[in-house]
Design a protein around this nucleic acid. Structure first.
Lengths: 355, 355
DNA sequence: CTGTTAGCGCTTTCAA
DNA sequence: TTGAAAGCGCTAACAG
């Protein structure tokens, strides 16, 4: 039922003339330089003059022109947050936390998605730099090398998040993705599992996925277990795909089929649960399933999903604080490793006795 | 295990001098005006000159200075998308669709959350206007009246989404929230339900919630049914709250307790499911539950949640297209009403025979 | 088709 | 403590 309203020619779109610093200066009986000082470095201005200017500002509802300020002072008060995707609220919670901190300090957050495409990330970031964004927060450690060159060329500070750059080349705030899945895999091994499956995001340009996969492999090889190639599947992060990936694993010969399936995040794990549900495979009786990032999506499944609580809001807060410190020329902690917790729920149990 | 890395004093943060139009002009042997024309109105420039300029642009990796351009031309190529929240991927999917369209046309999307606070929305929007954002997309029809005054004062085009402004005062692209829950409620009545519960978002400043509630009430009163006040609960949109709300309904005298509970979105419905699960109340045998917006969260529950597929990505796409058309002075369709579908799944059934 | 010129609104020397 | 004046990088009006 699309509307039958007729198309409409555009309104004149004339920007009403907004008050300028000149208007404020005239009303307050001072120069525009003083108006600027009152707003930016009030300590340099006589209190009485300040009063006058502030009254004029309020009366005229004056708001400084951001572009003019950015042009002149080379600082826009805008922070870019460039994330893979807002689907499934994985990264959204990090940016939400960032925004809260930055808003309070008078910065605006410019959000952009790149849909797991590092070339798109590069292009988007260039766009944002051109628009005058002062500093950046990125997700993950894997990026196009040209990204860092560009940031350096334009003198834009940045922080990587959701991981910690162990060789210290880049400022980073995150957690140990490999240790997280390592610990979880050890838990499953401890329960008696010997045959594992791994459902992973594409690892190309996604260090969270590759590190998480590496954690699983490390724990298995430490226990003398192998991860057969046909028990591993890679795919996009959406439930349709992840469910199809698990269907593939379920087609394996029952004698070889994994008794425990690990997803590199909750979306893979929930996809696995859906595939099991439709195939009549019982969780955790027949197969145990685990995820990562502890989303509501996983926690509310039946059975509830065992996962890893990664400190994704803490990461956002800390990243925002680092960026502010750097822009304001204060000391800052370049790297931060935050802790995770394993959240054991009902989707894991011992392997079936027949296995 | 916070890192023990020592704090660090900031890097000099000197912005490397980027190439300007002057540099390009010199290299190409033309004036800066011609450089500008090649980039903005190439049809006014000789093809050979264009070639020269483009080569210089590429060689110097020249990117126009956004703030300078914005200052001079009063257009920044930035579109503001102001949404209530990115939690639960409700609005994120709309903005994601917008971004895809706008990116392709060379616009950047500036995203902001207001957490269901219309005063915060007003402040955020003012910030964005000050930063030179050209046009806006908002969610919902309810806003602070000062918002519209401000947009008009500054000559900023805008579109409202997720609803259609029936009196036509504002451009809007959305769907009929009231009709959606009306249809769903009729379906439940048709199955024999007579006692209903409603779990709603706060209706203050949230027309989606109030319209959806109104749709439920309209269908009930048309059928001669009432909705007792103690069968209605209002709360914030998060699972902890929505689960607690449902616990309240479950404490009612069984003879009065609703046999069907309608959530104004899937988060309320899933909260209801969680409360039922912990209380041993069977869905749909003892109570039927429905949601709205057809999220993965609801669709993957056990039993799967009956919901309403609202065209939230289509809305994003259409909003982006309207905004582009307006900024580029082309005709546009001011309002658009898009269709919804009811998605019947396993969370609804006839009321229990005892009721 | 192209160059010259003026100036968007602000901040920041420099002088007073 | 304040004002005058310059100019950030770009685009648009006007000439040629």
């Amino acid at each position: 039922m699309p509307s039958d309203l007729a198309p409409e020619t555009p309104a004149p779109a004339v920007a009403a003339s907004r008050p300028s610093a000149k208007d404020v200066a005239r009303l307050a009986g001072v120069s525009t330089a003083t108006v600027s000082r009152v707003l930016n470095t009030p300590e340099q201005v006589d209190v009485h003059t300040q009063q006058l200017v502030r009254e004029a500002v309020t009366k005229l509802r004056y708001v400084p022109h951001g572009a003019a300020r950015a042009l002149r002072s080379a600082r826009s008060q805008m922070i870019g947050a460039v994330v893979p995707s807002f689907d499934y609220a994985l990264y959204a919670r990090t940016t939400s936390a960032m925004q809260t901190v930055l808003d309070a300090k008078g910065y605006s957050v410019v959000l952009a998605e790149h849909h797991y495409d590092l070339k798109a990330e590069l292009r988007t970031t260039e766009q944002l730099i051109r628009h005058g964004v002062d500093a950046f927060v990125f997700v993950g450690l894997d990026h196009d090398p040209a990204l860092f060159t560009m940031l350096e060329n334009y003198g834009r500070p940045y922080v990587l998040t959701w991981g910690v750059d162990t060789n210290g080349r880049h400022p980073s705030i995150g957690f140990d993705n490999r240790a997280a899945t390592f610990a979880l895999t050890r838990h499953l091994i401890g329960m008696g599992h010997r045959r594992f499956g791994l459902l992973s995001a594409y690892t190309q340009g996604n260090d969270r996925a590759s590190e998480r996969g590496a954690g699983v492999r490390a724990a298995l090889s430490q226990a003398g277990l192998s991860l057969p190639e046909d028990c591993v599947a890679y795919g996009a992060i959406d439930l349709v795909t992840t469910t199809a990936m698990m269907r593939g694993l379920l087609r394996l010969d029952p004698a070889r089929r994994p008794t425990a399936v690990i997803g590199t995040n909750d979306i893979f794990a929930v996809g696995a649960m859906l595939a099991c549900r439709e195939a009549g495979v019982r969780i955790p009786h027949d197969i145990s399933v685990t995820g990562c990032d502890n989303t509501d999506l996983g926690a509310t499944q039946t059975p509830s999903l065992t996962s890893i609580r990664t400190p994704i809001t803490e990461v956002g807060r800390a990243a925002a604080e680092q960026v502010i410190a750097r822009l304001e020329g204060r000391p800052f902690q370049r790297s931060m490793l935050l802790p995770f917790d394993i959240v054991i729920r009902d989707s894991v149990g011992p392997p079936p006795p027949t296995a």
